[in-house]
Amino acid sequence: MVGIVGYGSYVPRYRIKVEEIAHQWGKDSSAVKRGLLLQEKTVPGLDEDTITISVEAAKNALKRAEIAPEEIGALYIGSESHPYAVKPSGTVVAEALGIVPNVHIADYEFACKAGTEAMFVAHGLVKADLLKYAMGIGADTSQGAPGDALEFSASAGGSAFIFGKGNIVAEIIDTFSYTTDTPDFWRREGAFYPLHGGRFTGEPAYFKHVLGAGRAILEKSGYKASDFAYAIFHMPNGKFPLTAGKKLGFRKEQMEPGWIVPLMGNTYSGSSPTGFSATLDVAKPGDLILLVSFGSGAGSDAFIFKVTERINEVRNKAITVKELLEQNRIYLDYGQYAKYRGKIIMNE
């Protein structure tokens, strides 16, 4: 049996409400809240980035896995906000966790799906018996251009998953990836903010790939939507995942625990992995869980997990996503937010 032996998440304490962003740009906040089903989003502290978020999420995963860091043979981080253009995030994270030097490291990038790519590869290497344990992390401190619709959702946080063969909390039953070349969202080297294809981002991008991967993995595995306790779909806003889930035959109650976007925003590579982490926080032994990511460019990775008895032992060994999202929030006004996100031009 191959699966997850430990999982953990981290979310910064800072928040900005939809009202605050809408007010800044003269937009109607109630229309945004109704249209995108968003209330607030997480904002990284001045001293937080993809590397620090990955370290804290990984520490929580290690607490639940109850293994020594040196036993981890690979560490992969998926993000679209790696702090360096050249120099891996993974080396800093592995050094901070005490995993170096006997470890294979790579940073992944694939818009919002880089996190599940890291998980997919970590899982595959363990399954192939190349490594005893491998860690896959999805983390981001995403930026939307000021005044753009993405500014209401682009947020910060991440989750880490340790894959192994013994002591697993969730077995991997099946995986499926669905990918085409689709120019729905991009950022060129050196550009500060991403661009997107407007209406082009919905049907031919998000829905085509999420539904493509979702339908294919259901057919391949022989399961129906009603066999699952829970399902998580990538959350660019509140509405898209609910619509995609409904089209695949899932009810709102199956998606509710992992539908963290109203309070978290879209954490890009950390979005569906953190929704999955929140779902593991409430899952019971025997539960089937479907996870489908989406990354612009474009593609989706789908996973089917089956939760084991060990979930009840490890759940409380680290902070839950619900606690991270609902406790100790510090609210910023737009001016503070602009400073925190480096949107103010300073003299050197």
């Binding site: 001045l46 980035d49 590397i51 620090t52 360096y84 800093v92 901070a96 050197e348």
Partner: peptide, 17 residues
């Protein structure tokens, strides 16, 4: 104790954690 960014060595230098 938590792991954080300490400072950046200017705009192009390394980031100290």
């Amino acid at each position: 104790f938590v792991f954080r960014k300490l400072y950046e060595e200017g705009h192009c230098g390394i980031i100290n954690y």
